[in-house]
Each structure stands twice: as C-alpha cells, then as structure tokens.
C-alpha cells in the first residue's frame, strides 16, 4: 500500500492522552482567551493541526457527526476520522456536532452551523477554526464568564468580518456555536458566552 493512502496512527495511550487533552479543552472553554496546549504526541493527517486532530480524537465518536471542508472530507483526514473515531462525516453544516473550518475560507459562516434550540442550547455545533497563528494578529478584546475583567487575544488569519460573526453569535446567547481557534498544538476557546470586540 503506498504510504500516502495509509491511515496515520491515533493516540498511543488513549486513556491518558485523551484525559490530558480534555483538561486542556476544558480550560480553553472555561477560561476563554487563555492559550492552552494539547501536548499529545500524535501525527495528524494532512490538513488537520495537531490540536484539531487531538480534540477530535478526544471528543468525537459514533454519536457525533463531524463536518469537514470538502477537500479534507474526501482526503486522508476524512479516512483518519472515520477509522479512529467512527464518526459520520456529514455534508450539511447544521447537522454537525463538531466542525473544522479554515480561518480564511469564506464559507461556511458560523450561523450556518447548528445553533441549538431554546430548550436545548447544548445541541449546538462546536466549531474548530484552524488559523495560521494564535499570536501576532489584530487584537481582539474578550469579556464574559471565565475572564476576570477583560483580556486580549491576537489570532492571525481570520476572514474579514469574522469578528462580526462572533459578535452576532454571542448576541444569540444562550444559543450559538462554541468556537475553538487551533494552530499547531495550541488552542484558544471562544464559547458563545464570550463577548468579542476589536481592540481599540
């Protein structure tokens, strides 16, 4: 079998690697704006950052439909997710429990994912946004639960208007998607409860 069609391995030690990765995810979403590192030593498939792949290995399974961009879905990343997580890969953003999008891609907008319902806001999609860097970009100011006062983040490579999308998402509270910005082994959580503004 040629090497490029082989499915890369997942966790070497699923119990403890997923536990450590989950604590990083929990910290990311409970303390928005803090840079969290998933130190799991895995070789992610092409198109997924280490943090993205680790988060999906930790959280996704046969109960959670996953949305990937078309190119990733039909490539090694799709095969890797099907094999390791047994997750269904769906083509409609609104059906997904988890989604991976590229920070610079125009589509899909955050509002096309599942926003939850007023009686079950927990059913919304968790969107992992892959960006080329989590520091050194234009500054955003965050406030809300998990943040003492306010804090700043500066992710790179977010599409124009993404801050407005985050603001509109936050205005739907308690509905809305929860966003994780991912690059390399690092993550920043932006749950729907966080208010995002461009820093002045």
């Amino acid at each position: 079998m040629p090497a490029e069609t082989m499915i890369a391995p997942g966790f070497a030690d699923p119990v403890f690697q997923s536990q450590a990765a989950f604590r990083a995810l929990l910290a990311a979403l409970s303390e928005p704006g803090t840079l969290q590192s998933v130190a799991a030593e895995i070789a992610p498939p092409e198109g997924l950052a280490t943090a993205t792949a680790t988060a999906l290995l930790t959280l996704a399974d046969y109960e959670t439909p996953v949305w990937l961009p078309e190119a990733l879905r039909s490539g090694p990343a799709g095969a890797w997710l099907r094999f390791h997580c047994a997750a269904a890969l769906v083509g409609t953003p609104a059906e997904a429990a988890f989604a991976v999008i590229d920070g610079l891609a125009d589509e899909p907008k955050l509002s096309t994912f599942n926003l939850g319902t007023d009686q079950f806001p927990d059913r919304s999609t968790t969107v992992i946004v892959q960006v080329p860097g989590l520091e050194g970009g234009p500054a955003l100011t965050l406030a809300g639960p998990g943040i003492l006062g306010s804090c700043n983040i500066a992710p790179q490579g977010l599409r124009p208007g993404f801050t407005d999308e985050l603001r509109e998402n936050g205005a739907l509270y308690p509905l809305g998607v929860d966003v994780l910005l991912a690059h390399g082994e690092s993550l920043i959580g932006l749950p729907r409860s966080t208010q995002v503004e461009e820093a002045r």
């Binding site: 995810l25 959280l59 806001p121 998990g146 509270y173 749950p191």
Partner: peptide
Amino acid sequence: IRRALLKAVAVP
C-alpha cells in the same frame, strides 16, 4: 460526559 461538560461551561 466530557462533551456535556464542555457545553455546560459554554452556557453557565
């Protein structure tokens, strides 16, 4: 349970 916990912290 972990998925439920993440949604729980997102909607306090």
